[in-house]
Nucleic acid binder design. Sequence first.
DNA 1: GTATACTCTACTTTGTCAATAGGAATTATA
DNA 2: TATAATTCCTATTGACAAAGTAGAGTATAC
Lengths: 146, 146
Amino acid sequence: MKVTFKGDYALKAVLDLALHYNKELVTGHDLAQRIDAPIKFLEQVLLDLKKGGFVESRRGNIGGYLLSKAPVQITVGEIIRFIEGPTEPISCVRESYSNCTDIHRCVFKKIWQRVSQATSDIIDNVTFEDLVSQVNAGRQVLAYSI
Amino acid sequence: MKVTFKGDYALKAVLDLALHYNKELVTGHDLAQRIDAPIKFLEQVLLDLKKGGFVESRRGNIGGYLLSKAPVQITVGEIIRFIEGPTEPISCVRESYSNCTDIHRCVFKKIWQRVSQATSDIIDNVTFEDLVSQVNAGRQVLAYSI
DNA sequence: GTATACTCTACTTTGTCAATAGGAATTATA
DNA sequence: TATAATTCCTATTGACAAAGTAGAGTATAC
Ligand code: FES
Ligand code: FES
C-alpha cells in the first residue's frame, strides 16, 4: 500500500472533522490551514469524500463541512481504500499474474495476500473515535506539562 | 509498500536463479522468456541486482547469471527493499510530518509504523529456499495429477 | 575471428501526483 | 436586494517516475 498526499490530506481532514463532530461546521479555509494543505487541492479531496458518503457540506455564507457518520463508524481503512484503492502491493490484474496455471509465477501472490491481510487487520481496526481519543489524551499530557 | 514491475521482475528473476542454483548459468534471454519480461529492461534490473550483491555474471559465449549467495540466505524483503526502497506506506521526511510537536498530525504515524512492521515481519521471513520448495511441491502435485 | 553473451548510457513514452486557476452556484444576513 | 462568504465543478499545468527501447561497447568460449 502506498499513501499519497491526497490520502494523507483525506485522513487528516476526516480527523479534523471528527474533532468537531456534533459541534460546529468547519470551513475549507480553516481545515486547510490546520492540516497544512493547499485549499484548492483540499476542496477536491473533500468533494471525493462527499461522493464516498463520509462527508456532508453546507454551502453559502456560514457554510462548511461535517462528517456524515459518527467518528466511531469510520475506520482509517475505509478512507484509505476509498482514496488510494486496494491495499495490495501489486495487483494480479496484470497479465503476468493472470495465467495462474504456471505455479512458478504465483508463489509471490500468497506473499502479497498476506501483506494485504496484515495491513487490513491494522487499518480496518482503527476508528476515528480512537484517533480522537489519542489526540485528546495527547492534549491533556501537554496541558499537565505546562 | 508498492511493488512495481521492476520489483516484480527482480523477484521472479532471483527465484529463477534460485531454481538453477548450483546447476547451470542462466542467460538473460532464457530468464526473460521464462518470467515474461522485456530482455533489455530485465538486463538493467540484473545489473542492479549485481550492484546489490545478489547476483553474479559471466560474460561472453556460454555466459549468464547466477546467484552469489545460497537461496536460503536471500529473503524476499532484501530484494524488495533494495529495488523499491522502504516499506513504509508514507514517509515522514515530508514537512507536514516533520514537525512532530503537533500531536494532532502525528497520530497516523503510529499506524504507518505498525503497517510497516507487519509487512517486514512477512517479507523478511520468506527466503528463496522457501519459494523453491513451494515451486517444487507444486510441480510434484502436477506430476501426480497427470 | 566470430558468434554469443553481458555492460553501459542515453533516450522516449506514458501516466500519475500535486497543485493551480477560474469561475459557477448557493446561502446567510445587512 | 446586494454582498460577502462559502462550496462546487472542470480544465490545465509542471514535475517526476515507471516502463520500455535503442545501440554501441566489452568480454569470452570455441
Ligand atoms: S498470479 Fe495472480 S496469481 Fe497466480
Ligand atoms: S510526523 Fe512523522 S511523525 Fe509526527
